[in-house]
């Protein structure tokens, strides 16, 4: 048997805007903390993110968002994940998100939001605490 079960995390950047520097930095920090990170690059559609999460059987999805579309992206993503049976995958995010929106996003099912300036250690620590390998059954 394997000594430890690896945690798999999808880091994705939806939408058409900008660069993926932030997402890459987070992906690297997570790798250096021992996680397996599926990194899919820029311009992901929500459907692509859902399908990737499903095929890669990830335990969590980290979304990087700058475009201001967060109030659309997160709830839609969570809804579509439910539709394909991925209710137990943890969703977290980071980016420029107004403070007022954070409670609404959490209500929609986003587990945590990291604002710009959050240290990588904080993010990694949070992931370590909150993301565990999902259960399996035959």
């Amino acid at each position: 048997m394997a000594d430890e079960r690896k945690v798999k995390i999808l880091v994705a950047k939806p939408g058409l805007d900008g660069h993926d520097r932030g997402a890459k930095v987070v992906a690297r920090a997570l790798r250096d903390a021992g996680f397996e990170v599926i990194y899919t690059g820029l311009h992901q559609s929500i459907d692509q993110i859902v399908q990737t999460a499903l095929q890669e059987d990830v335990d969590a999805i980290g979304i990087s968002i700058l475009s201001g579309a967060h109030m659309y992206v997160f709830p839609t993503l969570i809804q579509k994940m439910k539709e394909v049976g991925l209710d137990d995958v943890i969703v977290f995010g980071g980016g420029i998100i107004p403070l007022d929106d954070i409670p609404k996003l959490k209500e929609a099912g986003v587990k945590e939001i990291f604002l710009p300036g959050t240290s990588l250690e904080t993010i990694v620590e949070w992931v370590r605490e909150n993301v565990k390998p999902r259960k399996v059954t035959l």
């Binding site: 992906a27 903390a33 021992g34």
Partner: peptide
Amino acid sequence: PSSPFSGGAILGDRIRMQDLSL
């Protein structure tokens, strides 16, 4: 490859295969 130091990995090949996901 996994990182020999942390045991973690960045798996980035899907970047080039995005629309195959669907």
